[in-house]
């Protein structure tokens, strides 16, 4: 399978992927309990007017997080 791992913060609006791993332990705990589990499908739904924060779709709901927070989430694309 041809896949590429990117940081969530690098994804453009409408791009999706599967959560691969986290680079920040503390923040990952919060994301985990919100349902952002490795293997879960994730999509960038919207980017706030000033470019930050972003809104993602996860397990069927919308979650907003800052770009710097999204930069700790690795996403497998394609």
């Amino acid at each position: 399978m041809n896949s590429e791992v990117k940081y969530l913060s690098e994804l453009k609006r409408g791009q999706n992927g599967v959560i691969d791993s986290f680079t920040d332990y503390e923040l990952s705990l919060k994301l985990l309990e919100m349902g952002c589990i490795p293997g879960e499908k994730i999509e960038v739904i919207r980017i706030a007017p000033l470019g930050d924060p972003i809104a993602i779709s996860i397990t069927g709901y919308m979650l907003s997080l800052r770009k710097e927070e999204a930069a700790t989430v690795r996403v497998r694309i394609g």
């Binding site: 503390e26 923040l27 919060k30 994301l31 919100m34 924060p53 809104a55 709901y61 919308m62 979650l63 907003s64 997080l65 800052r66 927070e69």
Partner: peptide, 11 residues
């Protein structure tokens, strides 16, 4: 302490 902004956008 770090600042988080992980927030649900409800319907």
């Amino acid at each position: 302490e770090r600042s988080f902004f992980v927030m649900e956008l409800p319907m």
